[in-house]
C-alpha cells in the first residue's frame, strides 16, 4: 500500500527583493492514511511552509510532493481542512454559519451540510452553541468551532498550524485529549504543526523534526505509544525518551 502523503527532497526558497532565504530543505517523509503526524521545530524551521505546500498554497521549488493514493484519491480543492493558531471565525456569523463557510465556498448542498455541521459541533463539544456568535465563546471553544469548520466538507486531510498555541496551558492539555478523540472518531489524516515537544509526542503517531538555520529536516520517527492515549502516558518512560530525542536534535540538551 502506498503512502497517502509522499514528500521527497522538498525545498522552498522565498525571495524578498534580491534577498533569498531558504524556508525548508531536504524534507522527506511519508504519511499513511489515517495517521496523525506532528511537525515540530523552533520558529523559522519552515513547519508552516511545509503545511502551505501541502495545502497547495505555495508550490515547492524542488522535490516531490504527492498527496493521495490509488486507494485514497485526493482532490486538492475539496480534501483539505485547515486550522490555524487563531480561530479566525467571522465575527458577524453565528457559530454554525462559521462552520458552514467551506461548504458554501465549495457549493455543497446546504441542507445536508447544515446537518453535518450540527453533528460536528456536537463532536467537538459545542452542541447547543450553534446560534451563538464567536464573541460569546471562550478562546478554546472558538478553536473547537474552527476544528468543526475544518471538518465540515469531509476532507481527507486536516492541516493544523499550532492550533492550540494561543491557549492557556490547561486548556491546551484538554484540547490535546479532545483532538485525539476527534481524530479517532473522524478517522482523518492530520498533519499537526507545533513547537511544543511534549505536544508533538503526545499527539503524533509519528514525529517529524525540523531545525532552523539552516532550515532542514532533522528526524522522522514513529511514536510507538499505545492508543487511546491519556495524560498518564506523559509519565511513561518511552514518552520521556522520545521528548529527549527531540530536545537533543534541537540542541537543547
Amino acid at each position: 500500500m502506498s503512502a497517502f502523503i509522499h514528500l521527497a527532497g522538498v525545498r522552498k526558497l522565498y525571495r524578498r527583493g534580491r534577498e533569498e532565504f531558504l524556508a525548508v530543505s531536504d524534507v522527506t517523509f511519508d504519511v499513511g492514511e489515517g495517521e496523525l503526524v506532528s511537525l515540530v521545530g523552533p520558529s523559522g524551521c519552515g513547519k508552516t511552509t511545509v503545511l502551505k505546500i501541502l495545502a497547495g498554497l505555495h508550490p515547492a521549488d524542488a522535490g516531490t510532493v504527492r498527496i493521495g493514493s490509488p486507494e485514497h484519491p485526493f482532490d486538492p480543492a475539496r480534501d483539505v481542512g485547515m486550522v490555524f493558531q487563531q480561530p479566525l471565525l467571522l465575527k458577524w456569523r453565528r457559530i454554525i454559519d462559521n462552520v458552514l463557510l467551506p461548504a458554501e465556498i465549495l457549493g455543497l448542498p446546504m441542507r445536508e451540510a447544515r446537518e453535518r455541521a450540527r453533528e460536528l459541533l456536537a463532536l467537538v463539544g459545542l452542541g447547543g452553541f450553534e446560534a451563538k456568535y464567536p464573541y460569546e465563546l471562550s478562546g478554546g471553544m472558538q478553536q473547537r468551532a474552527a476544528i468543526a469548520r475544518a471538518l465540515v466538507h469531509d476532507p481527507k486531510l486536516i492541516l493544523m498550524d499550532e492550533p492550540f498555541g494561543a491557549l492557556d496551558a490547561l486548556t491546551r492539555e484538554k484540547m490535546n485529549l479532545e483532538l485525539l478523540r476527534i481524530w479517532r472518531e473522524s478517522r482523518k489524516t492530520i498533519v499537526f504543526v507545533t513547537h511544543g515537544i511534549g505536544e508533538a509526542v503526545f499527539l503524533g503517531t509519528r514525529v517529524v523534526v525540523l531545525t532552523a538555520g539552516p532550515a532542514r529536516m532533522a528526524d522522522n520517527f514513529t511514536v510507538s505509544l499505545p492508543h487511546p492515549r491519556s495524560l498518564d502516558i506523559k509519565t511513561h518512560e518511552d514518552f520521556g525518551a522520545y521528548t529527549r530525542r527531540i530536545y537533543r536534535l534541537l540542541g537543547m540538551e
Binding site: A55, R78, F84, L88, I105
Partner: peptide, 12 residues
C-alpha cells in the same frame, strides 16, 4: 486576516 485568505484559497 492573511490566514483567512489562505483558508479560502485552499478550498480554491
Amino acid at each position: 486576516e492573511p490566514d483567512l485568505l489562505d483558508l479560502v484559497r485552499s478550498l480554491h
